[in-house]
């Protein structure tokens, strides 16, 4: 176990160093988009509307926090890993080292977790300032952190499976972008048709945003969603293991 954790840290260390050199641009990149959403949807669109008994602003903030956690974690893990794999090829050095693939996977996800957690917490703080009714609890932070982990693993998996830069950008436009908008982030899933609902509940972001919303609005904790979210994490991790074992072509 100490060896495992030590290796995880070694893998993470190099990404941390990288972040240290580039933290300003990195932070700016991941904050601009959610802040725009907050302004455009929360203020612009939803000024007077209320949804599920609360103001739209209070409703949408947890969704935007989840969305930020999702895109910052996914991209944080995926973009660095892509560079390591396709441009610098320094990922090969990890594969040739005695570090186990399990440590590699977790270590490579951590930069996404860190970036996702910082960005989404920042949005959360802005959100609380705008809508003071939102409840912030240790539970909320824990769910946020686990969401970041799940999404970062998703980013690692996507990069390991999709073998080109081109493929990654297609994936992010065709799969990720719709997912960020549709997963109950901006609207309530209660009124939509059953078929669409089933489809959307098969996405991890839907569960993350519904748990965060429940916590922020003091509703009962949706255990099922939490369980499903963690299962997604486990599935992504196993996917990464299989991808790395099969890799080396």
């Amino acid at each position: 176990m100490p060896r495992f954790l030590n290796d995880v840290y070694s893998v993470f260390w190099v990404d941390l160093r990288n972040l240290r050199h580039h933290w300003r641009s990195t932070l700016a990149t991941s904050l601009v988009q959610p802040l725009l959403y907050l302004v455009a949807f929360g203020y612009g669109l939803g000024g007077g509307i209320s949804l599920e008994g609360v103001s739209y602003l209070a409703f949408v903030i947890p969704g935007i926090v989840a969305l930020t956690a999702f895109s910052a974690s996914f991209n944080g893990a995926a973009s660095k890993l892509q560079v390591d794999r396709f441009f610098y090829k320094s990922f090969d050095e990890l594969l040739m080292s005695p570090v186990s693939i399990y440590s590699i996977i977790i270590g490579k996800a951590l930069i996404g977790v860190l970036r996702g957690f910082i960005s989404s917490s920042a949005i959360l703080l802005v959100g609380i300032a705008l809508s003071p009714k939102l409840a912030i609890s240790p539970w909320l932070l824990l769910v946020l952190l686990s969401s970041c982990f799940v999404f970062a693993l998703f980013g690692v998996l996507a990069t390991l499976v999709i073998n080109s830069h081109q493929g990654m950008s297609t994936f992010s436009n065709v799969v990720l972008l719709p997912m960020t908008f549709l997963s109950g982030t901006f609207f309530s899933l209660t009124q939509i048709p059953e078929v669409a609902k089933a489809l959307l509940y098969a996405l991890p972001l839907t569960h993350s945003s519904s748990i965060l919303r429940a916590l922020a609005l003091d509703a009962p904790f949706p255990w099922l969603s939490f369980f499903i979210l963690l299962s997604f994490g486990a599935a992504f991790f196993i996917g990464c293991v299989l991808a790395l074992k099969r890799a080396s072509v």
């Binding site: 260390w13 190099v14 160093r17 990288n18 050199h21 610098y88 090829k89 320094s90 050095e93």
Partner: peptide, 17 residues
């Protein structure tokens, strides 16, 4: 292709490896 992390210093690359 060298497989160095080009955004890090020589020493940081060595440290990582």
């Amino acid at each position: 292709h060298l497989s160095l992390d080009r955004d890090l210093t020589v020493k940081e690359n060595l440290e990582f490896r």
